[in-house]
């Protein structure tokens, strides 16, 4: 599961959707792998406005990556800053969680990740 995907996901429990603590989900005991992907600047500029930057900062810190700037770069800033482009490419698209779990900060439910595939199916009492 890519860090980008993590930025798109929150808790699947309906009651948690309204709570701000349900997003982002917190990685727990995660194994990280990195896949090499051809840079795709068009994709990155398209993704940037859809990324929740403060959640990305949280995740990046929790996974032990260097601190990101406090505010998201604008599209122009990103396009003129090769280093930023490369760093975001590595963080969002190349870095992946292969094993571990994601924990909701609101209800505490843990979603397992196995072989890079996260399982968001809920047990009956949370449906």
């Amino acid at each position: 599961m890519k860090v980008l995907t993590l930025n798109f996901l929150t808790c699947a429990v309906k009651a948690c959707k309204s709570s701000t603590s349900s997003f982002p989900l917190h990685p727990k005991e995660c194994e990280l792998v990195s896949d090499s992907i051809v840079p795709n600047p068009a994709l990155l500029t398209n993704i940037l406005p859809r990324v929740d930057w403060s959640a990305l900062i949280t995740i990046s810190t929790e996974l032990g990556f260097p601190t990101l700037p406090p505010t998201a770069p604008t599209i122009e800033e990103l396009q003129s800053d090769e280093k930023m482009m490369a760093e975001l490419h590595t963080l969002l698209l190349e870095t992946q969680i292969s094993e571990g779990s994601l924990v909701c900060g609101n209800c505490g439910h843990e979603y397992k990740i196995k072989e890079g595939i996260a399982n968001f199916l809920l047990p009956n009492h949370l449906v």
């Binding site: 599961m1 890519k2 980008l4 995907t5 798109f8 996901l9 929150t10 808790c11 699947a12 429990v13 309906k14 959707k17 997003f23 859809r50 929740d52 979603y111 595939i117 996260a118 399982n119 968001f120 199916l121 809920l122 449906v127």
Partner: peptide, 16 residues
């Protein structure tokens, strides 16, 4: 992009 296991009626995707 990614693949994950989820039910659309209980989607983990945030509303955005």
């Amino acid at each position: 992009g990614d693949s994950f296991i989820a039910d659309l009626t209980h989607t983990p995707l945030r509303k955005a």
